[in-house]
C-alpha cells in the first residue's frame, strides 16, 4: 500500500515536472520569437516597400502587406533618381563607396599584418610602449581630427576626393588592424620563428612562409571589420566630400533630407537597401568571422 502511494506521487511529480519543462520551452521560444519579430520587421518593411508602388504606400502606410509588385523603384533608385540636383541615382555613390572601401580595407589590413608581425615577433626596446600609443587611435573621436585632416587633404590636393577618404580611413584603421593582428600573432610559438632564423630565414621569408599561411582566420576578421566599418562610415564622408564625390552614406542622408515634401518611399527604400546590401552580404557570408571581430575588438 505504502509503496503504491509512493510511486503515485513520483509519477505526479514527473508529470508536473515535464509539464513545467514544456511551459518553460514554450516561454523561451515565445520570447525569442517576439524579439526576433522586432528585429526583423524594419528590414522586412523596407524590402517590401521597395517593391510596392508609391500610391499604394501613400494609401496603406509603410507597414502593410504589399498589394502591388514592381521593380521600377530599384531601377529608379540605381539609375535616375535625383539627389541634390544630380539625377543619376545611387550608382555613382555606390561606386564611390566601393572605390573608397576596397583600397582602404586592403591597404590597412596589409599594413596591420606587417605591424602585428613586427610587434609580436620582432620586438625591440620600447616596442610595447609604441604599441600602446598606436592603440590610442582606436579611441580617438573622429571630431578631433576633422580640422587637421581638412588642412592636410587640402595641402595634398585631395580635398573632396575619394582618394582623400582612402587615406583618412587607412590611417584611422591602422590601430584596429595592428591590434587584431598583433594579438593573433602573439599566439604563434616563438620557437617556430627561432628555428626558421637558425635555418637562415630572414624577416620577409619568415613572414611569407610561416606567418602568412597561419593568417587567414585573422585576415578574414580584419577585412570584414574594416570593410563594414569603412562602408558604413558617415562623418568623414560628409565632411571631406560633397556633391558627386560623396560616399553612399552621405548620399542617403542627402536623399532622404530632400524627400520630406513628396516622399517617394518606394525609391528611398530601394536606395537604402542598395546602401545596406554590401555589408549585409559580408555579414551573411562571413557571419562567424564578423562576430569574432566584434568580440575581439571589444574585449582587448
Amino acid at each position: 500500500m505504502a509503496d503504491l502511494a509512493l510511486t503515485d506521487t513520483h509519477d505526479r511529480d514527473a508529470v508536473s515536472a515535464s509539464r513545467r519543462q514544456l511551459i518553460t520551452r514554450i516561454a523561451i521560444y515565445g520570447i525569442l520569437s517576439l524579439f526576433a519579430l522586432v528585429y526583423i520587421v524594419p528590414l522586412t518593411v523596407v524590402v517590401m516597400n521597395s517593391f510596392r508602388d508609391q500610391p499604394e504606400i501613400a494609401r496603406n502606410g509603410l507597414i502593410a502587406f504589399p498589394q502591388s509588385f514592381g521593380i521600377d523603384a530599384w531601377w529608379s533608385a540605381w539609375d535616375s533618381y535625383c539627389i541634390g540636383g544630380n539625377c543619376e541615382g545611387m550608382k555613382r555613390y555606390f561606386f564611390n563607396s566601393l572605390w573608397m572601401t576596397v583600397p582602404a580595407t586592403i591597404i590597412s589590413t596589409m599594413l596591420g599584418a606587417l605591424n602585428g608581425y613586427v610587434l609580436s615577433k620582432w620586438r625591440f626596446k620600447g616596442s610595447e610602449i609604441l604599441f600602446t600609443c598606436m592603440l590610442l587611435g582606436v579611441f580617438m573621436p573622429g571630431q578631433i581630427s576633422l580640422m587637421p585632416w581638412a588642412f592636410i587633404l587640402g595641402k595634398l590636393g585631395l580635398s573632396n576626393s575619394v582618394v582623400g577618404l582612402v587615406l583618412v580611413h587607412c590611417v584611422q584603421g591602422l590601430s584596429f588592424t595592428t591590434l587584431f593582428c598583433r594579438n593573433y600573432y602573439i599566439s604563434v610559438p616563438d620557437d617556430l620563428i627561432k628555428a626558421a632564423r637558425i635555418d637562415g630565414a630572414g624577416f620577409w621569408r619568415i613572414f611569407r612562409k610561416i606567418i602568412l599561411p597561419l593568417s587567414p582566420p585573422i585576415l578574414i576578421v580584419t577585412v570584414i571589420w574594416q570593410f563594414t566599418g569603412i562602408w558604413n562610415e558617415y562623418l568623414f564622408g560628409v565632411v571631406f566630400t560633397s556633391g558627386t564625390q560623396q560616399p553612399i552614406t552621405a548620399a542617403l542622408v542627402a536623399l532622404t533630407a530632400g524627400g520630406t515634401t513628396a516622399s517617394a518611399y518606394d525609391v528611398m527604400s530601394a536606395a537604402v537597401l542598395i546602401g545596406a546590401l554590401p555589408p549585409l552580404l559580408v555579414y551573411f557570408v562571413g557571419g562567424k568571422y564578423f562576430v569574432r571581430g566584434l568580440t575581439q575588438g571589444a574585449i582587448k
Partner: peptide, 23 residues
Amino acid sequence: WRTIFLYPLAVSFIVTGTVWSWL
C-alpha cells in the same frame, strides 16, 4: 536566432536611422 539579433550591427547607423525615422 543569433543571425537575426546581430544583423543590425552590420548595417550603418545611417540606414538604421533613416528606416526608423520612417517608422
